[in-house]
Design a protein around this nucleic acid. Sequence first.
DNA 1: GTGGAAGGCGAGCTATCGCTCATACCCTAT
DNA 2: ATAGGGTATGAGCGATAGCTCGCCTTCCAC
Lengths: 209, 209
Amino acid sequence: MARKPLTNPRKQASQARSRVTVDALVDATARILVRDGYDKASTNRIADMAGVSIGSLYQYYPSKEALVAAVIDRHNRQIMRRVRTVLTEIASLPIERAVRRLVAFAIEAHRIDPRLHRVLAEQIPRVGRLENVEALNREGYALFRDYLESRRDELRVRDLDLAAFVCATSIEALTHSAVLYHTEMLRDAEALIEETTRFISGYLQPTSV
Amino acid sequence: MARKPLTNPRKQASQARSRVTVDALVDATARILVRDGYDKASTNRIADMAGVSIGSLYQYYPSKEALVAAVIDRHNRQIMRRVRTVLTEIASLPIERAVRRLVAFAIEAHRIDPRLHRVLAEQIPRVGRLENVEALNREGYALFRDYLESRRDELRVRDLDLAAFVCATSIEALTHSAVLYHTEMLRDAEALIEETTRFISGYLQPTSV
DNA sequence: GTGGAAGGCGAGCTATCGCTCATACCCTAT
DNA sequence: ATAGGGTATGAGCGATAGCTCGCCTTCCAC
């Protein structure tokens, strides 16, 4: 079951001029994915929108999948940078406040570019970037697990790995679903944040109320 | 923003012979989606696998998307039938037992054909079946909400709609993720069910412990 | 038993896809 | 100022996609 299509860049751009080209290509790929979807995102069209010839495209990326992978990787790097920042910020906060901050962050993050987020979420599996994404997910769990570890004696949960999985997966699903499919909920985002916080911290803490 | 590609069947099969043909087409589409993915699922290939000519394929479905939509609709009907059954079964159960049953069911349901479930989940948006799926989701929420309503005085949650959304989304996300991306968790499925049940019913009930 | 509708067939059309390659321009180190 | 690698170009190739259309077969009401 050998994976044929190479999804890694072909060569590094070394001069400033070509770095512009590469950026334009990745940007154009993202824009077309959002505007037209994966099927309509042909390499010719991407090159066109980037204002670059098809030949140049293939200088840097061996396939359409490689371009999509580049968009995914870039997006994930941005998200993970934010995630790390937030998790550092909450390190010293008590559980409920920490959870509230995390939930608010998750909503913000989904709101940045919901349509790109959605298209990428859909395309990740077929571009073989699942492993990378899973790796980042696991990093996220691990970071949150560390936080839980530091508050262990305030928790009622036993298995911290499991708890981190439960919390992270739920927060992501709830915010994802609310932002993408139930936008009416965001009219009162406070209520959503409040309820989710109660949900999660009620699970973690012995009995808050 | 008119949707061009028609995704509805072209005509109803009236004779037994043609119903067989239509079934074969939908089956073949599902099998090819699972085996080769959406990109490789050409109409020629589908007709081939169904043992039917492309001409016949286009008698009943105007496009590849329509076929995928047919698979999605059929799959969703099956799932929803089960969901309704389970929600009827749990109607008389106390909260914790009801939630446990629901969680166990969700895992079962995801395990039936995980790969088909996954491919369909990925393809739903591009086939414009989102509305249908959302409608079914909402039916699911509503049914669960009815259950909550019947146990209102045992609950500590105020907004039942919100609570139903929170519970349903979380259960689906946790079981989905566990079955598709963290299969190692299923080695001890009991633990997962137990924890999720604690998670959800702890949120719903005043203070169980 | 026959005529018309329902069903089935598949060669082949057009469009577009991903991608290559021969050619030419730009930049920088010497 | 020039050599030579880095960069950019786009016509066009072979493959395959979705899909049509003219024709044949099967079914069924009468």
